[in-house]
Simulated assay, not measured.
Amino acid sequence: MTHDPVTLDVATAQSRRRAAHDAPFLAAARGDTPSRRPVWMMRQAGRSLPEYREIRAHVGMLDACFTPDLLSEITLQPVRRHDADAAILFSDIVVPLKAAGIDLDIVPGRGPVVAQPIRTREAARNLPVVHTEQLQPVVEGIAGVLEGLREDQVLIGFAGAPFTLASYLVEGGPSKNHEVTKGLMYSQPEVWHELMRALTPSIIRFLAVQAEAGVDALQLFDSWAGYLSARDYREYVAPYSRQIFAALEPYGIPRIHFGVGTGELLGDMAVVGPDVVGVDWRVPLDSAAERISSALATEDPQGSPEQRLRTLQGNLDPAVLFAGPEVVREQVQRVCGEADRAMARGLARGHIFNLGHGVLPTTDPDAITRAFEEVHQQ
């Protein structure tokens, strides 16, 4: 199957964005001084909120992702409750695969399950690519979200990165060790690269559709990249993530890269082209900034000091939200202090506060609200 190139409509994307230039999130992403430290949390729209559980009581996950009014409402719920500086689009990393016609479902308690795993070159070559019209419900949902945001709040779109999507397709579902995925990657690299080449256009198109619908930033989420060595990441993953970030550059909006357990890959993940690098809770932000800055300097020794800087996103341990107000206050201050030290040393250009992964389902919503309030005081 041949894959048509993804064409970009930058003018439409610019015309639909409505966030103010000095919105705290955008200012921090650029490296300007924001009016307050911006904060949002991955999975902030979800099971921790009683209003979410109520609205999802009789609706499947993917059904909600493709129902515009539900998508909009769920995306906006935590922004209203917590005074977040950014909304993250309610979606799932398998949405573009489902929209393209791949037989999969999200099974409660397990996650995405694929009916026919992709393990041959022919299957990879014939993988369908999502088309813009298949994503129209997402476009309509984004319009509803934008109507509900203040001009100082932004909307972040996102997609799963090629390695993470490939892992689900090869394994047939979630995996603790990714042994089938890595076994295929090592033993049949030609099949692996065929699959990655097939996935990349769908990811670019999914993100492009979101950009042209008016989102203000884009995050590429590589959930499982932390299971790879740096060597394997560079050979089997980085070329495709780099292609995605390069394709999105003309939109001129912040591009974020995040993965779980990727402390040893932070430099490599920065090198592929994001403007903002998400850091999980295992690595202090000032240490992360050193790794990122060093990798960028090695990649481009002739580059200017400014070109070696990225904005940091993160990185409170989600479990801290269970420890009580005093601990939350102390840990928020610690994270902000680490980010401030990195910026003072010229190793980072900004900080967007976040968790080091997603909000846990049993988190008290009031604890999240208090954390947001504390961040805004820093």
Rank of each mutant, 00 (worst) to 15 (best):
I204Q: 05
G172Q: 03
G226D: 08
I203P: 05
P162R: 13
L218G: 04
R150G: 13
Y186E: 14
D222K: 04
L228V: 09
G141C: 13
L207P: 11
A247R: 00
E235F: 11
S175F: 00
I244T: 06
A238L: 09
M185N: 03
M185L: 12
L155T: 10
Q188H: 15
G173V: 12
D216T: 06
P189T: 09
D222S: 04
E171R: 04
L228P: 06
L165N: 03
Q210A: 07
G144A: 06
V209A: 01
V180C: 10
G214H: 10
L228I: 03
D216S: 14
F158S: 05
R234A: 14
Y236V: 11
F163S: 09
R242V: 03
D222R: 02
L248T: 02
Y240M: 13
E179W: 08
E235T: 05
L146A: 05
V191Y: 08
I204F: 13
E179L: 14
V180I: 11
Y186R: 14
G144P: 06
Q188V: 05
L220E: 05
Q210D: 04
G226E: 14
V209G: 02
Y236E: 12
D222Q: 13
V180Q: 15
V145H: 10
W224M: 08
Q188P: 00
S167G: 11
G144M: 08
